[in-house]
Write a protein that binds this DNA or RNA. Structure first.
Length: 846
RNA sequence: AGGCGCGUAGCUCAGGGGGAGAGCGCUACCCUGACACGGUAGAGGUCGUUGGUUCAAAUCCAAUCGCGCCUACCA
């Protein structure tokens, strides 16, 4: 009713991410908002507001009340939409349809009439869940069970002569005044030979029969069951099969009826106390024990529901459900992740008829009329003028309205112009995907499946992606009054919408519920900030006329030899990120897409690439190579923005407009992989060269850190390697290492004397000596080396154990064995080098 | 009562048969001309417990304990 809760936010964000992503892949995307304000919730809100102004719904009458709800909706209906817009929802607001609008109402009536004519809708007396406060029937799905500490009362129903009798146990003694029988199990020996086949119903002094039915559980209590057909669905079934009368003792208002005799007018709770007191006085209360059991509550108003006998409209869902089951079984609709299929099947197989009538005023009024003259039932789309049977004109319309989910079930086609065969309907039925929480699976998804298949002859959607639910600490539905709940609007105010959306995406791992963590949101705000600053830096260096950065100019149309190693490397990494992101989103792995982008942007683009290219960018001489780097910088930034855009639409849109060479909205930009101007880079040599360079830089930095040398102090480094390829790579990138590791001098040779006072690090084939003449702390260095040796020893232990195992060598795949052997060799070599260095250091120390 | 899911670093969580990961927090050193909402480096985990399958188990299977959710007519 107008407040965006975090579940909505998650739902909306994931849908929006998918829509924006698929749009960037060139898909024809229609994302339609479904705002539904029919039903009890809206009625209750408006009723409450009117009551505060001193107006009673019943006094104003149905027509005026419905008018008041329309006005309320006019006034507040847009609230949640505005909040969704703030969240960045890019759905097609122009197409917003409200289930109560005229076109959709016609669809609802048509569906109702057709189902009625097919015999799939019927009217009958049955026990339904009744909410005394909302004063209407509600469906099983609207009932929430809550564990309650109650009591189990054991009551003796004596034989007519006042002796003995049968003891029954109940949690609801007030219903006993409506009992019409006592049931025992036919094989229960305790009751095989009774002096009488009837007992006296205490307090009411009514003689009721003892019936025998295998439904009764002999092991529970004394094995006697009181039968209250009007207030318990199972008892009702018993009553039908044993021809027992039903006596409705609790009224629709939750108060005892005239049938309850002297208890008439009492509230059901008051009545319980009175009945218990009276039973005690009569000496018929055998025992009271504490008993914990679950009680159904209305999920709208949290009032304990009352199973109540009443005349309602039902849909026979079995035939509809069979087709909906088959559609999932044969893969016409896929449910993702698959584990939810079981839940869908379980429910569909055990489905009961659906009570669709509601005794409220706000909703689609059931299109049924009764002829007062001949009692003929007329079900029609348009209001009939006379009775087709007797031509009588005194027709009374059914006052009940339809369950909200009845109209919602038609959403996939009723919103597209059905029953007309519109182009919209042809294009977007079936839709590709429905994204929703599992709580909606039964209440809505299953119903859309049934109705869609029945009326369209085809499933409403190809895929249903079920995402996790956001929970509060108690695992209950979030509500503002609890206080331990984060309000999405507040989070967005504090951390920004992009950070919030990124967090939701990062948390949306399949198969687990989400507990909102503000710390995480804060972390992603830092990420968004990082992107902003990195872009600011890049934009400083991107000239206005640089068309190649984005758009028509294409992907780095520069001579390959002008590209630096970091340029080639970042382009290769971009391509891999592009693949990870698209694969992740294609499989609804939002968290994987988010973390791939996070890792790439922060740790590769910012930490390595931007730092690596600074010397070139600041080089006043500039030249072709600088221009090439600028083009790569612009291009990669452009691709980052496009890939990140589905998750963080606001900042990427803003940066997009600042990027030279861009036109229009980033929403219209093609995903890099689908951009014809993109040149794919599978550049294995760039990656392996860069790995070596980064490894050496990290090795030097490690020594700097461990030896506590200030970053401002320039180091002298000597590298030795017997491997020519290694030496060549290092020679080629001397300047890069210089800059990134902050060196004053760097030499590279195949072998030679070990420097006297140096700290050592080994990466791959290279031994790195950081010369610390006069500065080196030998004990510190030997400690550092020992620690390193320790790590290697542990790794070596595991590897050696495997290689000593003949079964491993025999049975493990060759590639695995080979890998382990290589690793073992590398470790041994490293160990040996470290050992000799350690020996030297120790010697110096001594 | 059944079904499903979860127990991995101090916290929030990824991963899911062959190298234990991220973010936050923590420690040390740095305000270097995009960014201190920052940089560099570091510490920290017998992946709930017990068995089993396997050459190999955090990962698969079984049992068990703890937690959560969904379903159910046990009065």
């Amino acid at each position: 009713t107008g407040v965006l809760h975090i579940g909505h936010a998650l739902d909306c964000t994931l849908q929006d991410i998918l829509s924006r992503y698929r749009r960037s892949r060139g898909d024809n995307v229609l994302w339609m908002p479904g705002t539904d304000h029919a039903g009890i919730a809206t009625q209750n809100v408006v009723e409450r507001e009117l009551a505060e102004q001193g107006t009673d719904r019943h006094e104003m009458g149905r027509e005026k009340f419905v008018e008041a709800v329309w006005q309320w909706r006019e006034k507040y209906g847009g609230a949640i939409i505005n909040q969704l817009k703030r969240l960045g929802s890019s759905c097609d607001w122009q197409r917003e349809r409200f289930t109560m609008d005229e076109g959709l109402s016609r669809a609802v009536r048509k569906v109702f009439v057709q189902l009625y004519e097919e015999g799939l809708i019927y009217r009958g007396n049955y026990i339904v869940n009744w909410c005394p406060r909302c004063h209407t029937a509600i469906s099983d799905l609207e009932v929430e069970h809550e564990e309650v500490d109650g009591h189990l009362w054991h009551i003796r129903y004596p034989f007519p002569d006042g002796t003995g009798g049968i003891v029954v146990a109940t949690t609801r003694p007030e219903t006993m005044v409506g009992d019409t029988a006592v049931a025992v199990h036919p094989e229960d020996e305790r009751y095989a030979h009774l002096p009488s086949e009837t007992v006296m119903l205490p307090l009411m002094n009514r003689e009721i029969p003892i019936i025998r039915d295998s439904y009764v559980d002999m092991t529970f209590g004394s094995g006697g069951l009181k039968v209250t057909p009007a207030h318990d669905p199972n008892d009702f079934d018993l009553a039908v099969s044993h021809n027992l009368p039903s006596i409705k003792v609790i009224g629709d208002d939750g108060k005892m009826t005239a049938e309850a005799g002297k208890y008439e007018g009492l509230d059901r709770d008051e009545c319980r106390e009175a009945v218990v007191a009276d039973l005690e006085a009569a000496g018929l209360l055998e025992k009271v024990e504490p008993y914990r059991h679950s009680v159904g509550h209305c999920y709208r108003c949290n009032t304990a529901i009352e199973p109540n006998l009443s005349l309602q409209w039902f849909v026979s869902v079995k035939p509809l459900a069979e087709k909906a089951i088959a559609a999932v079984e044969n893969g016409e609709t896929r449910i993702i992740p698959k584990m939810w299929e079981k839940s869908y099947f379980d429910w569909m197989h055990n489905i009961r008829d659906w009570c669709i009538s509601r005794q409220i005023w706000w909703g689609h009024q059931i299109p049924a009329w009764t002829c007062e003259d001949c009692q003929e039932m007329i079900v029609a789309i348009e209001t009939p003028e006379k009775c087709p049977a007797c031509q009588g004109k005194r027709l009374i319309r059914e006052t009940d309205v339809l369950d909200t989910w009845f109209s919602s079930a038609l959403w996939p086609f009723s919103t597209m112009g059905w029953p007309d065969s519109t182009p919209l309907l042809k294009t977007f039925y079936p839709t590709s995907v429905l994204v929703t929480g599992f709580d909606i699976l039964r209440i809505w998804v299953a119903k859309m499946m049934m109705m869609g298949i029945h009326f369209m002859g085809e499933v409403p959607f190809r895929e249903v992606y079920i995402h996790a639910l956001v929970q509060d600490e108690e695992g209950k539905k979030m509500s503002k009054s609890k206080g331990n709940v984060s309000d999405p609007l507040e989070i967005m105010d504090t951390y920004g919408t992009d950070a919030f959306r990124f967090t939701l995406a990062a948390f949306a791992a399949q198969g687990r519920d989400i507990k909102m963590s503000e710390k995480r949101v804060e972390g992603y705000r830092h990420f968004v900030n990082k992107l902003w600053n990195a872009s600011r830096f890049a934009l400083m260096h991107l000239p206005e006329g640089l068309e190649t950065a984005a758009g028509e100019g294409g992907d780095t149309p520069i001579v390959e030899t002008d590209l630096s190693l970091p340029d080639r490397w970042i382009l290769a990494r971009r391509d891999q990120t592009m693949d990870s992101v698209s694969q992740a989103l294609d499989e609804y792995r939002f968290n994987e897409a988010a973390s791939a982008l996070y890792q790439f942007v922060w740790h590769e683009f910012c930490d390595w690439y931007l730092e690596a290219i600074k010397p070139r960018l600041y080089d006043e001489a500039g030249g072709k190579k600088q221009a090439a780097t600028k083009q790569v910088l612009g291009r990669v930034l452009r691709d980052i923005l496009v890939m990140l855009h589905p998750i963080t639409p606001f900042i990427t849109e803003e940066l997009w407009h600042r990027l030279p060479g861009t036109t229009g909205s980033i929403m219209k930009a093609a995903f890099p992989a689908d951009d014809p101007s993109l040149i794919r880079r599978t550049d294995a040599s760039a990656e392996s060269e860069m790995d070596l360079v980064m490894g050496i830089i990290t090795g030097i930095r490690n020594i700097r850190g461990e030896m506590n040398i200030a970053p401002s102090e320039l180091l002298t480094v000597a590298i030795q390697s017997k491997d020519k390829i290694t030496r060549d790579i290092i020679k080629r990138h001397l300047m890069l290492i210089h800059h990134m590791a902050k060196l004053s001098a760097l030499t590279i040779e195949s072998s030679g004397a070990r420097p006297k006072a140096a700290a050592t690090s080994i990466f791959d084939q290279a031994t790195i000596f950081v010369l610390l003449e006069g500065v080196v702390d030998f004990s510190r260095e030997s400690l550092r080396l020992e620690k390193e040796m320790g790590k290697i020893a542990t790794e070596l232990f595991g590897v050696t154990k495997k290689l000593n195992n003949s079964d491993f060598l025999k049975k493990a795949p060759e590639a695995v064995v080979e890998k382990v052997k290589e690793k073992s060799a590398a470790l041994l070599e490293k160990q040996e080098k470290l050992q000799s260095n350690l020996d030297r250091i120790r010697a110096m120390e001594g």
